[in-house]
Design a binder for these strands. Structure first.
Lengths: 109, 109
DNA sequence: TTTAGTACTTTGTATTGCATAGTACAATCT
DNA sequence: AGATTGTACTATGCAATACAAAGTACTAAA
């Protein structure tokens, strides 16, 4: 029984929602996303984020364009597609339902 | 992008917490657990529950004894060990932290 | 030119929810 | 008594994803 592993398992499925939310507030690139997640005590590593962004792009929830950086290599800036916005709303409901279900199961208010 | 798959992913890591909570309220067997989860809109199937109960038993969070049933095959009744109670408390905190982190990330209150 | 920092890509692993197939026990039906 | 049905549990394989690690590529500074 390893609590760190459980934390990782608990994150599965939830990170999509978090990342779509962050992007919905305006164009960002990967390091922005990692920074915002860290600020919210949601630690996610590159090996998770990049494949996830790729999946979301392949599912047509995201689009991106390359933007020259003035202090390093070019960056991929992401935005939500209209499909991405629709799914984000759905994920929001799904998350809320999950919280309610878990709190009911565990009898927390 | 399949919302049902996302729901399954979101459940990962959380079911332990739910199941330990249910058992903490008194001895139950597997069908009791499935019923309580269903009542809380937390659908879990046998193929998930039994291996999970076995894992928790192997991790020494649960103990069980066989009890004759008066209307069918014998049943395995589970209780929390003291380690199980300790971990349940830890999982409760972990869950609460996750909810806070997600809601902060998604800017929900 | 080399080094360091930044950004992204790729791949393999571990874990777990789900689906499915099966075994076993007890009660009821034929 | 044997067959069927319902209940309870076991075992296995698959899909998906977070993480770790290795690598490529671009830019600026040394």
């Amino acid at each position: 029984m390893n609590i760190e592993n459980t934390k990782a398992q608990m994150k599965k499925g939830i990170l999509e929602y978090c990342i779509l939310s962050i992007i919905s507030r305006g164009e960002v690139y990967a390091s922005d996303i990692i920074e915002e997640l860290k600020n919210s005590k949601m630690i996610v590593v590159e090996g998770t984020l990049y494949p996830l962004l790729t999946r979301l792009k392949n599912d047509e929830l995201l689009s991106y364009q390359w933007v020259e950086s003035n202090s390093g290599p070019p960056r991929k800036y992401f935005q939500l597609t209209s499909e991405g916005k629709r799914i984000l709303k759905e994920l929001s409901e799904t998350w809320n339902e999950l919280v309610i279900a878990v709190n009911r199961t565990t009898k927390k208010k």
